[in-house]
Simulated scan of single mutants.
Amino acid sequence: MGFQLAPTATAEGFRLEAHDSVGSTNALALDRAREGDPGKLWVVSRKQESGRGRRGRAWASPEGNLASTLLLIIDRDLKTAATLGFVAGLALGDALEAIVPGRTAMAADGAGDRRGNRFELKWPNDVLANGAKMAGILLESSMLDANRFALAIGIGVNVVAYPQDVPYPATSLKALGANCDAETLFLALSDAWSENMRLWNEGRGLDLIRQRWLSRAAGLGGEVAVRVDGDVVRGVFETIDEDCRFVIRDDSGALLKIAAGDVHFGVVASAHTA
């Protein structure tokens, strides 16, 4: 089966541009916007040669993994549009739950995930399985004119392979025992995106999105360490606020709101250095 949009996505006017291999789906989507594309365009590929993650980090996607980007043309404020990253996380989580049988994504001791979600969302833009990174989300924007900008919502998923030389645990659907290909996952993702986008409702439904995201949040209530501009802030992960900032309570009881940073859980969060 080749890449296809879900019927719900097609009915809502989304379009598809599929490739066997690309440099970067985000870069290609932004190029399409500069060429005049009206948006609601999914750019997908089974292989990505020069993708990017947060802070310019490389995000390679070997053949069989999913590299996808949704291009939207936005005429609202960028701050509100940035919360679509949380919509993307929810959509991917919903898609994974829909296509991966319940017996997979079990914990190492065979007991399963006792928290109720096999796939968790790590602030601001990762999807985890059993604490290991399986997917990343990257939003990039480009001004088109005085009133509009292009927003590329990149979603990369380790379907058949995961990177070995990274400083954090990683996994793939194949490693979890799931018999799923990139095309099947994308079909479910395009359907789940439409549903969550409707809930977001041009930003008016952000509180609902926030509550849904928190129900899947990794590390909620536990110790975290957040690296912010070279400094490390430690505390307990309390919530995300109405602007989707990461909120932690430090040792003094003060609530700290963090707009951007790298989050670490577990042993790293408890260590004296990170």
Rank of each mutant, 00 (worst) to 15 (best):
L78N: 01
G154D: 00
L92Q: 05
G131V: 02
A108F: 06
S141N: 15
E97Y: 10
A81M: 13
A95N: 00
T104C: 15
A132E: 13
T104W: 05
F149E: 03
E120Y: 10
I74G: 02
A107W: 04
R148I: 07
A132P: 11
I74S: 04
L70N: 08
A108L: 08
T104G: 02
D75C: 02
A152Y: 02
G93L: 04
G102D: 15
D113L: 06
A108S: 11
N125E: 14
A105C: 13
T83H: 11
A150P: 07
N130W: 02
R115Y: 11
A81Y: 06
A107G: 14
G136L: 04
N117F: 13
A95H: 05
A111G: 15
K79A: 14
E120H: 09
A135D: 07
A105K: 06
K79I: 00
G154Q: 03
D126N: 03
V160A: 15
M143H: 07
E140V: 05
A82E: 12
R118S: 10
R118P: 01
P124V: 10
N117Y: 11
T80I: 00
F149L: 03
G102A: 14
V159H: 06
I137Q: 03
K122Y: 12
D145I: 09
E97L: 07
M106Y: 05
P124I: 07
I74A: 05
A152M: 10
L78H: 02
S141K: 09
L92I: 02
V100Y: 06
G85M: 00
G112H: 10
G102V: 05
D165C: 04
A95C: 01
A88G: 13
G85S: 04
A107E: 15
R103F: 12
P163Y: 00
A95S: 07
E120W: 12
E97D: 15
A152D: 05
R115C: 00
R148N: 04
Q164T: 15
V157T: 13
R115L: 11
V87P: 05
V159F: 09
A98F: 11
G156W: 09
K133N: 11
W123G: 05
G156C: 10
R115N: 01
A152R: 08
Y162I: 04
D165Q: 14
S142Y: 02
A152C: 11
L128S: 12
G110M: 08
A105Q: 07
M134N: 01
G110P: 07
G85T: 02
I155V: 15
I73D: 04
A108H: 10
I137L: 13
L138M: 09
F149W: 06
A95F: 06
I153F: 12
I74M: 02
T80A: 05
R115W: 11
N130E: 13
A152W: 10
N147E: 14
G136S: 05
A150T: 13
G89F: 03
A161L: 14
A135W: 07
D126W: 05
A152H: 10
L138K: 05
K79D: 08
L72E: 11
M134K: 01
D75T: 10
M134S: 00
D109Q: 00
R115G: 08
L151A: 08
A98T: 12
A129V: 15
L92P: 05
R76V: 03
L72Q: 01
I137A: 06
L96P: 06
G89M: 08
V166E: 15
I99D: 01
F149K: 03
A132C: 14
L70Q: 09
P101L: 01
G85K: 01
Y162K: 14
